[in-house]
Amino acid sequence: MNATVCALPTATPESKNVLTQRLPSAAQLKQQLPLSALLCNQVSEQRQAIRAILNGEDARLLIVVGPCSIHDPQSALEYASHLAALARDISEDVLLVMRAYIEKPRTTVGWKGLAYDPHLDGSDDMAHGLTLSRELMIEMLRMGLPVATEVLQPIAAGYFDDLLGWVAIGARTTESQIHREMASGLDLPVGFKNGTDGGVSIACDAMRSAAHSHRHFGVDDRGHPAIVLTPGNPDTHLVLRGGHSGPNYDCAHVAKARAGLEKNGIPVRLMVDCSHANSGKDPLRQPDVFNNVLAQRLAGDDSVIGMMLESHLFEGCQPLSDDMRYGVSVTDGCLGWEATEHLLRNAATQLRQQRINTNVIG
């Protein structure tokens, strides 16, 4: 039997049409936009304040609030200035953290966030996106605000990890071993969201994994491939955000989540995301969710350490276009600033009154 042998082409980057473009390393960007000693100390104190809330040493409510995603530096900083002023007014009862999300998960395709496409035109100028994102976060720190973000791309985390007071791991990445390993090496509190099915078992596994030391593949500050040894992160907690089956913020679901944490030997501390499935993706329903969870807290459930809100200068959302409204989200719909301020001031008033009553009785 005669056989004809065909030579297969050798696969090369060129034949696969894969193009690469070098970015500055995390160390280079941090050197270009350094964190002053004063702000470095501030970040350390902010992280410790959040840890104190997680550990029950601080009775304040932790609120992570801000735009679903940042797309316009001017409106983001205007929002931050409002939030900073409010944070000072209600600081005795509420710790406000600025939501500065510069990466966005996409189910299929779409705008991936400021770090990816800062010009909003598909040019994907990531070098400028990283620089602009770091500049904005530093400016928010100068206003006195703790800064929070969701980490999607572990490589990108190295460009901002020195600025952050709190980090979220999203519902779609909580199951990811890579993100669990990354969280194990972060020296700051991390909130793991429940899975998209609404259950908490995946998040419990994630928190148990993140608490342990890991040796894993990664990159160093200079962008070189490296073996990374992480110490483990004890400062993690659960974030309830609802799921395919509906909301999970009411008393029954919170009790079920609390039982799940206890069963796994995980510290019982949880936050409720008032958006996403908990609000049915209707931003105007966030206050109802918020007030329900606040009532649970006021009724004595100290396992609820805080809430998340998606909020911008003006309510709603809009598609990317050449004629966009100022201060309106381009991803998920947000609550407007006036409604947000009213909601947070009212919460602070109720918490303050309870604190006064408790002190009087005591």
Rank of each mutant, 00 (worst) to 15 (best):
M1R: 12
N2M: 14
A3V: 14
R22V: 04
P24R: 09
K30H: 10
Q32K: 12
L35G: 06
L35A: 13
R47Q: 01
I50K: 13
L54T: 12
D58T: 12
L61M: 15
L62Y: 10
V64P: 06
V65K: 06
G66A: 11
S69K: 10
I70Q: 14
S75G: 13
L77D: 00
L77E: 02
E78N: 15
S81Q: 15
H82Q: 14
L83P: 14
A84S: 09
D89T: 10
I90E: 09
E92F: 12
V94P: 12
L95P: 03
V97Q: 12
M98C: 09
R99K: 05
K104I: 05
K112G: 12
A115P: 06
P118N: 04
D121F: 01
D124C: 13
T131F: 11
S133L: 01
E135P: 03
L136S: 01
E139M: 11
E139L: 08
G144E: 01
G144C: 00
V147Y: 07
T149M: 01
A156E: 08
Y159S: 04
F160E: 07
F160N: 08
F160G: 09
D161C: 13
A168K: 07
G170Q: 05
S176W: 01
A183F: 08
L188T: 04
L188G: 03
F192M: 06
F192P: 12
T196V: 11
G199C: 07
V200Y: 00
I202V: 08
C204T: 01
A206P: 07
M207S: 08
H216S: 12
G218L: 07
G218Y: 05
D220S: 10
R222L: 12
H224V: 05
N233V: 02
D235Q: 07
H237T: 00
H237K: 02
G242E: 00
G242A: 00
S245L: 08
H253E: 10
V254H: 09
A255C: 00
A257Y: 03
A259E: 09
G260M: 05
G265K: 04
P267G: 13
V268Y: 04
V268M: 10
V268P: 02
M271T: 05
D273V: 02
N278Q: 03
K281H: 02
D282H: 15
D282I: 14
P283I: 08
L284P: 06
Q286V: 03
P287E: 05
F290L: 04
F290E: 15
D301E: 08
S303W: 05
S303G: 11
G306S: 09
M307Q: 12
M308V: 00
M308T: 01
L309W: 01
H312C: 14
F314N: 14
E315C: 00
G316T: 02
Q318C: 07
P319K: 12
L320A: 02
S321F: 13
S321R: 04
D323W: 11
Y326A: 03
G327I: 13
T331D: 05
T331M: 01
C334S: 02
W337P: 04
E338R: 14
E341T: 14
L344Y: 03
N346E: 15
A347S: 10
A348C: 05
T349V: 11
Q353C: 02
Q354D: 10
R355L: 04
R355T: 06
R355I: 02
I361Y: 15
I361K: 15
